[in-house]
Amino acid sequence: MPLLTMTNVQKRFGSLSVLNGIDMSVEVGQVVAIIGPSGSGKSTLLRVINGLEPIQGGDIVVDGISMASGRGLHEIRKHVGMVFQQFNLFSHLTVGGNVMLAQKLVLGRGKADAEKRGRELLAKVGLEEKWDAYPSQLSGGQQQRVAIARALAMDPRIMLFDEATSALDPELVGEVLGVMRSLANSGMTMLVVTHEMNFAREVADRVLFMDQGRILADGTPDEVVAQPKDARVQQFMRRLTER
């Protein structure tokens, strides 16, 4: 059974239709890169999966839980981690506070357990010594790695990345991609909206190309990035390589 299934998902902002019947599913352990022009609905696709945006039609099922069911939204959120372009670390909390807050409040973990798990994950992203630092004392790359650790601390089944490296100085992109790469290698199921074609080619099992709220292409990196069949995708790739 797929870990994530979207059936005929519709999303509108007022009269603007942003997702036009999305059908797709993601298997456990798959790493899916999502590419496409700006405004095509990539962020919205991620945001409906953890319920940051309500949908107007269709259904989303994560790990057997339907978004449409009573506690669906709450349960799904617990299983889905999200990493944002702007990091969004809680600025009034230390790194430790950031990775522990939701563990304590949402999972009901005690302080000792939350700290243990938090330190484990910070070590994984190479920032264990920053436990007492505040976000403002960290570089963008470090903040994003903490944000990844914070999401992982909830033991999610799926991780969503929305242009996680787009706000970073070029020299800091590598450290974040490195963390994402090792996460992918560890078997995490990931949906990654990205402009990093190398990452899509090397790490993703599958690439989705979105345009105007639809999935125009869905295949291996080779099929979608290297030798696209669809004219729109070809055009997008040409523009990308011209830059």
């Binding site: 953890n50 944002f84 969004n88 939701a102």
Partner: peptide, 29 residues
């Protein structure tokens, strides 16, 4: 910043928890 509330929502915090643990301390400052 709106992103603070979104991050808290994505982590599963309830409306009240977001208000108390994320918005209140920052708004008070």
């Amino acid at each position: 910043p709106k992103g603070q509330v979104e991050a808290a929502t994505a982590l599963g915090l309830s409306f009240g928890q977001r208000l108390w643990y994320v918005v209140r301390p920052q708004a008070l400052r």
